[in-house]
Simulated scan of single mutants.
Amino acid sequence: MQIDTVTLKNTQGVTMPKIGIGTWHMGENPQSAKNEVGALRHARDLGFTHFDTAEMYGEGGAEEILGRAFAGQDRDGLFLTSKVYPWNAAKNDMIAACEQSLKRLRTDHIDLYLLHWPGSVPFEETLEDARLLLDQEKIRAFGISNFDTEGLRQIMDAGMGDLVSVNQVMHNIPHRGVELDLFPFMAEQGITAVAYSPLEIGPTTKIPGIAAIAREENLTVAQLVLAWHMTRGLAVPIPKSSRIEHLDDLAAAAQVQLSPSTLDRIDALAPLPPQPVPLEIRLAGWQDCSARDEADRPGHTGPGRERCELRSGEAFTQGQHLPHEAGRSSFLRDANRFGSAKALAQYLILKTS
């Protein structure tokens, strides 16, 4: 499988593959570890070399799974992204957090290190540690995640954007608001967009007409959506799957180019919002249980799925997302106080149930 790359701004020529594999929810269940390691190795065998993780995922468990999967393999052929908690982004704290991530990943450097979402730590402090990590060659590029247009503009206006190469945000067919304001501003600044939750299979399948287009293209809905991302090239998608057959499907779809007429038909079924909307974000505990494998085929049900959707629905806008402006004013700030997004999410679910 041939995968194109993009050269990241504010780096010394660092290139990133234009598609990656996510690891959210990996490392949470020891009984699943063997299958997850096998899936990641299979993904690399298929030609995927870009893998995305975070210290938040399984509280370091996903990083450990990645470390196990590629231990002893050629590191030069891998592109690893990880993310730091906002409360670990203060001066000296981020260096310690990065060193723990390196240990779990069993590597001497991280290719792209992101601030997971805006927090209370002054960005100047975060940048200070980022510069040290770059100088020490423990990271090769630095970026941000879940920053909206206003937040990114504040960074640029304050002259603090000289290290920012990437902004990772949620982008998929049901959630296209970033195309109106954030993506154009990022393009102006030369900042690469990475799309997490790029498939959003459940909500996408419910869009009337989407499944029919997929059938006409001889693709699954997941393949159609990934081909939509790859054809348009607005953001680097990082779908997640721990199932061998789904990874095979994703690898095949990554090579598909949709026709302009097919793109127009998808636009007609899922148009852009009429005006900019608050940035939609998804963190631990904010999604329904069925989202654990993004490439799951429609109709999948699992233990507790309905209960999870019901319990998290009211607290997290029907289990899909939390508006970014609310996140900044309360959720993200309170996550710092609770010590983790997961702890706060559990508290809110109990409080609203």
Rank of each mutant, 00 (worst) to 15 (best):
M186V: 04
A187D: 15
A187P: 00
A187R: 15
E188G: 12
E188P: 01
E188D: 14
Q189L: 10
I191W: 00
I191K: 00
A193R: 04
A193S: 15
V194S: 09
V194I: 14
A195S: 13
A195V: 08
Y196F: 15
Y196M: 02
S197V: 11
S197E: 04
P198D: 07
P198F: 07
L199W: 11
L199Y: 10
L199H: 10
E200D: 15
E200Q: 13
I201P: 01
P203Y: 08
P203K: 08
T204I: 13
T204A: 13
T204S: 13
T205W: 13
T205Q: 14
T205M: 04
P208E: 07
P208N: 03
G209V: 05
I210G: 07
I213W: 06
A214I: 04
R215G: 15
E216H: 00
E216G: 04
E217P: 00
T220I: 02
V221H: 02
V221W: 02
Q223I: 05
Q223C: 06
Q223V: 06
V225S: 06
L226F: 04
L226D: 03
A227M: 05
W228H: 09
H229K: 05
M230F: 01
T231S: 14
T231M: 07
T231C: 07
T231N: 07
R232G: 01
R232K: 14
R232W: 01
G233V: 08
L234S: 04
A235L: 02
P237N: 07
P237V: 07
I238Q: 03
P239E: 06
S242K: 11
R243L: 12
R243Y: 03
I244N: 07
I244R: 14
L247Q: 08
D248A: 12
D248Y: 02
D249Y: 00
L250A: 15
A251N: 13
A251G: 11
A252Y: 10
A253M: 09
A254L: 03
A254I: 01
V256C: 10
Q257N: 11
Q257Y: 01
L258R: 05
S259E: 10
S259L: 05
P260H: 04
L263R: 09
D264R: 12
D264S: 15
R265C: 02
D267L: 10
D267H: 14
A268G: 03
A268P: 01
P271W: 06
L272F: 08
P273Q: 09
P273R: 10
P274D: 14
P274K: 13
Q275I: 01
Q275C: 04
P276L: 08
P276W: 06
V277H: 02
L279Y: 02
E280D: 07
R282P: 00
L283F: 15
L283D: 01
A284G: 11
A284T: 15
G285W: 00
W286E: 05
W286D: 00
Q287V: 09
D288C: 05
C289K: 15
C289W: 08
C289D: 14
S290T: 12
S290Y: 14
S290R: 13
R292H: 08
D293I: 14
D293A: 09
E294M: 04
D296Q: 12
R297Q: 11
P298R: 07
P298W: 06
G299T: 03
G304N: 11
G304A: 11
R305C: 12
R305G: 09
E306T: 13
E306V: 15
R307P: 00
R311V: 09
